[in-house]
Simulated assay, not measured.
Amino acid sequence: MNYLELYILAAFFVTTYGNFLDVSVWEDNPEECGRTRFENTTLDVADYSKARVGQFPWVAMIGSIHPDNQILFFCGGSLISKSYVISEAQCGRLGQLVRLGSIKAEDTEEEKDCDECGECALPPQDIKVRKQIFGNDCSLNSVQRIIILELEKPAEYNDFVRPICIPTDAFCHTSRIRQRALTPGFGHIFSTLVGVTERKEKFDDMRYVNSAIVTQEECNAIYPDLLKDGEFCVDYPKGVNHSCVGDTGGPLVEYLKVKGVARAFLIGVAKINPLICEAEDTAPIVYSSVCNYSEWISNQIVSSIEAERKQGRRLFAV
């Protein structure tokens, strides 16, 4: 990234979010990123647990709009700013709408979004996708497995809708093997080859589980010759009897204390094989490493902003 691009990106983030924190793992992340109404921590979850409202405010549901205006949600994603969502490449091809701020797996427009403790969220935000930003090669065999979805209008931040932090070089240069992370999601499983996969046991509410990153050797032993550069595997504890707690395109979340506050960082985007989800035994899930795409994400957002400016369109919040 050249100095002009860095200046433009920094100017937009500073204008929108204020000054950055002066720490090497922080860099260009917005002030609101990775914070929730709870004390962020990777809990020792023995089995998949129901999420509280506002516990994972960056989790997005990606769906398509049918002719009768019904919405089919089939993938997950992560809000990284007011106008951009990160997901798995194949999810974005059919993604027409993003839902933010909900812990319910289905359309709950007529009922409150409440958790088991009786706490209720504000109504979810449904925002149409304005543009899909792929890598240089958007074929099914592409190494580029991450897509950026640009929203038609900015999301409104509140206790239930906030962005997740993007890892920086300082963060990524630390080994993540055996690190604990959380996998939140609804169990939305999708493949362009198979389509939407109906789970044997469907989640009505968002669930999450404590996960661990395994070594490349362990992953290659299960998926010989299938793991690409920038991909890694995550395994669940023995008490979990589902391979696919999260969503295709959904986040793998790791917490890091920055300036005394525990913040969530997006370290992986799920690349879930529907056949594994249908298997009786659990198996590690493949994720695309966000560390491999951090610079690409920044470059694409800068390019998108510049394109809007050249076309004379009104710029919206990053």
Rank of each mutant, 00 (worst) to 15 (best):
A105I: 03
K50A: 09
G118T: 11
E32Q: 12
Y84I: 06
E39S: 11
G77R: 03
I62H: 01
D68C: 03
Q55D: 05
I86V: 15
A89R: 15
S64P: 00
D126W: 06
A89D: 05
Q55V: 04
C75H: 05
K131P: 01
S81N: 13
G34P: 05
S87M: 07
G77L: 03
I80S: 06
D126S: 11
L72P: 00
E39P: 00
G92T: 02
E32C: 02
C117M: 13
A89L: 11
I133A: 04
S83G: 06
P123K: 12
F56C: 03
M61I: 04
P124E: 05
T108G: 08
V53G: 00
P67L: 08
Q55K: 07
P57K: 02
K112M: 12
D113H: 11
I127S: 03
V85A: 10
D113G: 07
D47H: 14
P124N: 07
T108K: 03
R93S: 13
E110Q: 13
E119M: 12
L79T: 02
P67N: 09
I127M: 12
F73W: 12
D115P: 06
R52F: 14
R99L: 11
Q132E: 10
F56V: 10
L43A: 11
D113A: 07
L72N: 13
V98R: 04
D44E: 15
I133Q: 02
T42V: 15
Y84Q: 01
I71E: 08
R130P: 00
E32F: 00
D68S: 15
L100M: 13
S49N: 10
S78W: 05
S78H: 02
V85E: 09
I133N: 10
C75D: 03
C120I: 09
F38L: 11
V98L: 07
F74M: 06
A121T: 14
R130H: 14
N40A: 14
P67S: 12
Q55G: 06
R35N: 03
S102K: 09
F38M: 11
K128A: 08
T41V: 15
K112T: 08
I103G: 01
R37N: 07
E109L: 11
I103S: 01
G118R: 11
N69I: 02
D115V: 13
G101K: 05
I86Y: 01
K82V: 00
A105K: 15
R37C: 06
T36F: 11
A105P: 01
R35D: 01
E110C: 05
K128I: 00
A60V: 08
L43G: 02
I65M: 07
C117A: 12
S81F: 01
L97M: 15
F74Y: 14
N69V: 03
S83W: 00
D44R: 14
A121R: 05
D44C: 08
S64T: 13
